[in-house]
Each structure stands twice: as C-alpha cells, then as structure tokens.
Design a protein around this nucleic acid. Sequence first.
DNA 1: CTGAAAGCGCTTACAG
DNA 2: CTGAAAGCGCTTACAG
Lengths: 348, 348
Amino acid sequence: MAERARPTIYDVARRAHVSHGTVSRVINDRPHVSPATRALVHTAMSELGFVRNHTAYRLKSPGSVRQRIGVIVEQLHEVGASGNTLAALAELQSAGYGVDLATVNGEDVAASVTQALAQFDGSTCGVLALAQSEEMRRVLLGRTVPVPVYIDRFLDRGTPDQPGAEELIGRVAAEHLSALGHQRVLHLPGPAGALAAGHRRDAFVARAGALDMVVDIGPEGDWTSASGYELAGSIRPHIHTAVFVANDAMAIGLMHGLRGRSIGVPDQVSVLGVDDAPEAQHLDPQLTSVRHDLSAEGRLAAHILIHTIQGRPEPDPTEYLRVSVSARTSTAPPGPARRRSVIDISTE
Amino acid sequence: MAERARPTIYDVARRAHVSHGTVSRVINDRPHVSPATRALVHTAMSELGFVRNHTAYRLKSPGSVRQRIGVIVEQLHEVGASGNTLAALAELQSAGYGVDLATVNGEDVAASVTQALAQFDGSTCGVLALAQSEEMRRVLLGRTVPVPVYIDRFLDRGTPDQPGAEELIGRVAAEHLSALGHQRVLHLPGPAGALAAGHRRDAFVARAGALDMVVDIGPEGDWTSASGYELAGSIRPHIHTAVFVANDAMAIGLMHGLRGRSIGVPDQVSVLGVDDAPEAQHLDPQLTSVRHDLSAEGRLAAHILIHTIQGRPEPDPTEYLRVSVSARTSTAPPGPARRRSVIDISTE
DNA sequence: CTGAAAGCGCTTACAG
DNA sequence: CTGAAAGCGCTTACAG
C-alpha cells in the first residue's frame, strides 16, 4: 500500500484561497478570523481530509514537547504487573503526559531494557520503570539515562523512617499473627527473583523477631495457586500454628491442599494471605489477608517521577500506602489447634 | 522549577567549533566525519548533556513516524483489561513498533478518546483500540482517523464463518450444560455496558435455543465476586438446574451465597463460570469454567492491526481463539438435584 | 571530511 | 481581519 501524502495547511490554504497562517488560526480556534473565511477553510479541510501533523505542532509548541514519559513494564507470568501499572499509566496521562510504553520480557532483560531506552531516547522527559525482578533493577541501575528515571522504590521495603509497601505488608502480617497468640509460624515466600517476595519475607521475619515470634521459611512458590497447592505438603500443624503465604492466590491453593490432607483451617493451622483478593471473603473458610492498595502504589510511583521532573519535592508516601489486615475466619488464636495436635501425637 | 532549556545541536556545534550539520552526522553515526571531530563533538555533547529532540527528528525523518502505534485502553473498574492488553502491547513491540498508550476512563469517554486521538495524531501509523464498553466503541466509530484503526472485533461474536471469542464462549457453555442433560438454566450476565457481557449472553442463548435448552436471564452482575454473592438470591433450584455465570469471579461469589442458603453445588444446581481462573480448581467444589486464552486474543488484535498497516491479509483468528470447558465438580447432570428438589417441595 | 542552506509542517508575533 | 515572514530543532542534498 503506497502511503498517500497527507494534505498540509498549505494545501488547505491554496484550496481556500487564504494564507496558511489563517488556516492555522482556524484549526486552533483563535479569534480574529471572519466567519466567512472560517467556513471557507473548514470546507477546504474536510474536502481534503486534512489532519494536523502533530509532530510539527509539537515542535512549535514546546509546552507539549517535554510532555512524554517512557514507561518500562516488566511482564512476569504474562499477567504480572497489572493493577499498579495501569494505575500509574492513568495517572501520568491525567497529569498531561503522553506515555511511551515498552515491555521487558524475562528472556533477555538487558536487551529489552536497551531497546526500550533507545526507543525513549530524546522523545521523553522521564522514565518510569516498574521492575519486578532484581535482574531488571540491576540492569537499569547500570544504565546512564539523560532524563530522570524512577524505579519504583516505594514498592520495596523503603527506609526506616519511610517504610515501603512491602515493609508495611510484612510488618502488619507479623503483628496480626502475633496478636492472635501464635508463637511459631511458617512463611511461604514468593519466587526468589521477585523483588516484592524478598522484601515481604524480610520485613515479616524482622517484625516477627521483634515480637518474639519464631518464623521458619518454607519452600518458595511462584505466586500461583498451583504452587500454593503443592506447598501444602510442607505444612506441619504440630510445629506451626499459622502460615503466612506470599499472596492470596498461593493461599487459595494451599487451603485446597490442606483440605485434601484433612488439616483444618483455622483449627489446626491459620492461613494468612496478601492482596485481599476480591474472592478472599467468598472462600470457605474466608481468607484473612493483608490488604494493600495496588493502584495507589502505582499512582505513587507516577507522582514521584512527575515531581522529580518538575523539580517539586517528593510526595509523602504515607498518604498512598495504606496497609491493613482484613481479618476473616482463616486465622484464629492457636489455642485449640495446639491442644488437638498434641493429643493427636500422643494417640499415635 | 523553571524548565531549563535543553541544549540543541547548535549549542553543541558552537562548543565543538563545528557546524550543526556535523553534529547531526555524529549523532546519527553517519560516515564522513573524521575521528578527531567526532570525538570533539562527543565530548561537547556529554558536557552539555545533549539529548536529541525527538520531535524535530521525526519531523524530518518521516520514515520513523510510521513505526509507532497508538493504543487506547479502556479502564473499567481499575483492573479491567489486563491480560489481553499486556499481551497486545508486547506483541506490537516485538513486531518493531513503538507504542503510544492512552487510557480512557469511564467518566467522559468522548473527551478521553478525543484527547487520545489528538495525542496520536501524526505520530502514529495505526491505532489499536481495546474497547470494553459499547460507549467507547460508538465514540470511536464516529471519529475520522487518518490511519488504520482496529477495534478488537474478534473479541466480539464475530461472523458466522469466523466466530469471535465471545461467540465461542457462549456456545461452548451451552453445549456443556446441554450435554450434561440440563433443560432449563439460568444465565447471570455481566454489566450491560460491557460488550463482552452482551455477546457472551447472546451467544449462549442462541446456542442453547438450538439445543432445545431453555434459558432465563437473571439480573446482571458487574464482574465482581461481590455482585455474584448478591445474585445468589435469584437462584431457584427447583426451576433451574444449572447457572451459567458471566465470569469466574462472579461464580465464586455466587457459590459463597449458595453455601449460605444451603443450596448444594452441584447437587441442587450446577455452576459454570468463564475464564478458568487459576483458583477455580482450588475451590470447594472445584469450579467448572470456560477456558479461553486472553493473551492469545490480545495477540490476535495486535496482529490484525499490524497486517492491515502492512497491507498483508488478515491472520486466521481460529489459530488464536482456543475455547474449551475445564470440567470440574461444580457441574454435573441434573438428575439427583431434580429428584431432591421435588421431594423438598412436596415435604414443605 | 565539512559547512552553508533549504526544508519538514506548523505557530505566532509583526505589519498592514 | 489577514498576509508575509521568522523560527521551532533537526536532516540532508549540495557544494566545496
């Protein structure tokens, strides 16, 4: 298909017998054009199917030139980042920035990042990298980019005075189980390569330690229900009275596996997930879960980058990161479980 | 912060004591520049922190203009499109296109679309619109765009000889329930504004009719588990022996509601969902669900647009649309249920 | 190898 | 109200 050259304002001007300056005034709805000429220009435009060349427009209206931001999204497991990514994108847009998107696949992170950065080069006033893997983060940190780059650090553990989302999640989880009276619990972490999984685990362990609760780290899952199901075999109710699972999907699979092994939840073992998935409260037993606001976390990332670009102070993360426990029936005090499991053992 | 003017090739040229033409040759890695001047220019660039203005670059090199595709994503309920969207984006990228992303929010669809199209205007060689609502589709159809626009039609019902994903989903669902022996079933559709919900429902009704199965349409949900839970009140096991629910999330909520009303699944009523969510097989009872491949559907949309742009024939959708039923324990023949509900009624 | 110049399609003072 | 002209930042023949 031969690309037919698009008509320019010069073509329109010639057809309407006016100057191209006048055409410009018309398409920008500026004053000081007589209704008659305006109409003339409009018909010429529609006859020619004129559409303004936005690139040229931008060149002259630099206000909008700096208005593009490159976003690099990492796709793990196809679904991967979705909630926070889409929220971040929407936020950049509503702040008036155009979004250039690039995705990074797990196969060759370095190459994907290079390609993405090349694509953004010169057309972008900032880069938002939504990294999920340590590898992508490492690759990015090794690059020199001429514009501000923000790698969503607040989705990490953050700093002591400004805890990140993962830090809060781990803390709150430990506090919930400790408050119920659990003294020795198991944690089933997410995949080793995932930043969130590691931070979540570390924060949980740290807080549990401070609360005198013993934590054993079980085998890792991969965020999926299937992996949670597999991991049910690692549960020892006579040792651990509760399990903190990396996310709700894994927790759902785990509970299925426990049903198969006739291990009662929460009677013999409490199960605590993360994400407060919409289904959590519709399960049997209803799943207790650490609730956090993925879209707010995405918005935070967007705001931090925007503020950096505009030279404004960073927004206060605590306003975005709201983490709490949605307590339901899958977690309970360990009392009965302990007793029963002791009896079980002595009976054997 | 006052936007510090970015250095241009003229600034670099002055600093390196060369002409700006030479600078251009250097940044484009063109031949016929002596190593010495090249080095000179490079240091000048790095000292100044020069970054090429991509807008100006594009204005002169229209060749690269065609290498970008604008994507409009509709965000319903924050999560909305994710699986197919991300797959489509990845596909466009790996085909060598840059992606310009714009999101449409539900509040003012017409304005969002206008803004998105304006943003793409002139910088893009095609537009991929992932519309979820009838409104967005309608708005798009009313616009004149100078480049190919593809509104993901194969996610619809398609044509008789080329059924779309939704058509296949509805068909397969009806066939599954009919094969089990159900004769009168209920459908709980998704929200009225959602294209997918309507097509899914219509296809189901049409196929059921062809199979002599009676379908009643219940109140609509909004894709969420919460809405499914609410809808449990509309189930009449003595009338319908099975329910086809718009998606798995709603089905999960529905099953919760049925538990609360002590209506056995599948003994009294079979439940069939759509999406084959990873959790489906970990529920109790395990949820039977229509499986379809969201990422393949996203890839299909991307390929159709790319082929259109390149003037190649459209890809064969049947290679992408794989729809089947993952049969589990939430659906079963109606036999026992019928008998029991009859007894229940006579006992009352 | 390098510079001077034209031009991409548009906007916007500046005159009239 | 309208036109002629300069200029946005870059690329690319065309001379030298």
